[in-house]
Every structure is written in structure tokens, then in C-alpha cells.
């Protein structure tokens, strides 16, 4: 999947891993150089689902997160129902990774097979806290409480 939809990423010197997972933490495809430690991939999935889940929950619409580490960068892009994470050496230009995604992501998301796959994936991220709102009774109760509190202060 990655080599088909994002061929430039796998050919770019310095890119060590590309992981595509859905928002339920399931790894859909991965491409790595032979020396790459693949045991960290589930942790990567978990971390980024958490980050983008919180962002979605707060309606911040964070599309991209880039984190530097000792030997390179972790570049993650939120594709709503999918997340793509790229592990690359520091020599790789972030703007080039971004350009590749700008060009390739629309084809990826518009592909019939991927669109069909996406339909079966829930919209909210794994473990994402659901939206909640207060009902009328709760609102009245809080208003009464705060009203009393103000009244108390004024009385003093």
C-alpha cells in the first residue's frame, strides 16, 4: 500500500520507516529499511492516535506533528481515518515530506479500495473521549450553585 501510494517516500535517502495505521491503532501497512527496529511501531501508532485524538476532541484540527529525536525526526500526518508516520534522518527536509504528502494523499484517499476501507473505520480515534454536554437540569443546578455562591459573597 505504502509503496503504491507513496513511492517517493520509500525512495528518498534518509527515510527509515513509513507506517500507515487506521484510527483504531491497526497497522494497515508498513515499510522500513532492514535495520529499523519494527517493535516500536505499535507504540508509535498508540502515541499518535492519542495526540490526534485529543486534538480532534478539542476541535483543533491538528494535521501534522513533527517531533525531533536524537537521530532524526518523527513526522506524522492526520488523515482523519488514517495516520501516516514517517521516521527519517535529520538530513531529510520536512518540506519535502510535506510536498510528497500534499501530492499523494488525495490520490490515496480517493482510491476506491481505500475509500471502502475508510467507510468501515469509525470516525473517532481509538479511546477518544466522547463529546459530552450538560442537560438542562445540570445547567440549572450549576446556575443555582453559582448564584448562591455569589449571593453568599455579597451577603458577607
Amino acid at each position: 500500500m505504502i509503496e503504491t501510494y507513496f513511492p517517493e517516500l520509500t525512495r528518498l535517502p534518509g527515510v527509515e520507516a513509513v507506517v500507515l495505521f487506521d484510527n483504531q491503532k491497526k497497522v494497515r501497512d508498513q515499510w522500513t529499511i532492514p535495520q529499523f527496529n519494527t517493535t516500536i511501531i505499535p507504540e508509535l501508532a498508540e502515541s499518535y492516535i492519542q495526540i490526534f485524538g485529543v486534538s480532534d476532541r478539542l476541535k483543533e484540527a491538528t494535521q501534522e506533528v513533527v517531533v525531533p529525536f536524537e537521530r532524526g525526526i518523527l513526522f506524522a500526518r492526520n488523515l482523519e481515518k488514517f495516520v501516516i508516520v514517517i521516521v527519517a534522518r535529520l538530513s531529510v527536509e520536512i518540506s519535502l515530506l510535506r510536498l510528497i504528502l500534499e501530492v499523494r494523499v488525495p490520490d490515496f484517499l480517493e482510491d476506491r479500495k481505500i475509500a471502502k476501507m475508510g467507510k468501515r473505520i469509525p470516525a473517532s480515534k481509538f479511546d477518544q473521549i466522547n463529546e459530552f454536554s450538560l442537560d438542562e437540569k445540570e445547567v440549572n443546578f450549576i446556575q443555582q450553585l453559582t448564584g448562591t455562591a455569589h449571593g453568599g459573597k455579597e451577603g458577607n
Binding site: 527536509e93 518540506s95 519535502l96 510535506r98 510536498l99 500534499e102
Partner: peptide
């Protein structure tokens, strides 16, 4: 190395 960022600005 500056070419991708140039393309980003132009885009």
C-alpha cells in the same frame, strides 16, 4: 535542500 521549501512557498 532549499528547493522543497521554495516549492512550498510558491504553492
Amino acid at each position: 535542500k532549499f528547493l522543497p521549501v521554495l516549492v512550498e512557498i510558491l504553492s
